[in-house]
Amino acid sequence: MLAVGTLPSPEIAAEPLAPEATVELLDRARRGDTVALEQLLDRCIPPLRRWAHGRLPGPLRGPQETADLVNNAVAATLERLDRFEVRHQGALQAYLRTAVLNQIRDLARQHKRRPQMTALPEELANQDPSPLELAIGAENIERYEAAVDRLPQADQEAIIGRLELQYSYDALAVALGKPSPDAARMAVTRALKRLAAEMRRG
């Protein structure tokens, strides 16, 4: 059964880091400071896990599987951390989200390539689309992803932070380095209108 949205939306557990703190922690992590790295990931990983849950197909949607997938993606991304120029946590979050998304796509491709070894019961062999696919369809997801990629970086971060990672405006203001929640809200609505126009163009 589909049981969506019957509870109030949960608030983000950990507040994002201020831009200065993010830059500082990232610098320390790049220099090999594991405490700084853990602090950074403590802020970034939970929202990513919640986000990934809605994007994963059924068999991979268990809490453990989601955690593993996010951890793997983040670990792989950390190797390229020195190439990433961070301005605030929102940018890092968007970057990590892309890494997780790529990981999900890789898994989907592997699943398609893998030969069917045994005759699974129909219900288990069912592709079981992700909740997001179920809700808006695979084609719309593709269109959305493509349109997001074409947006300016700031718009991408606003969209990902608010729509996908479900930051409150207070948290989003911090994550995006905006002066106030109202400014963050304005950034989101503007980005949304630009995104809708991009999606219309296809």
Binding site: L7, P10, E38, L41, R50, A75, R162, L195, A196, M199
Partner: peptide, 30 residues
């Protein structure tokens, strides 16, 4: 464009909902 904003609204709803479906393991590292 309204139609696409509606789709975006549904996308946000899914993420909002699924944010609550994952057991919180937020204090773990890797």
């Amino acid at each position: 464009e309204l139609k696409w904003l509606q789709v975006l609204g549904d996308l946000a709803n899914v993420h909002r909902d699924h944010a609550g479906n994952v057991e919180d393991t937020s204090r773990t590292t890797l």
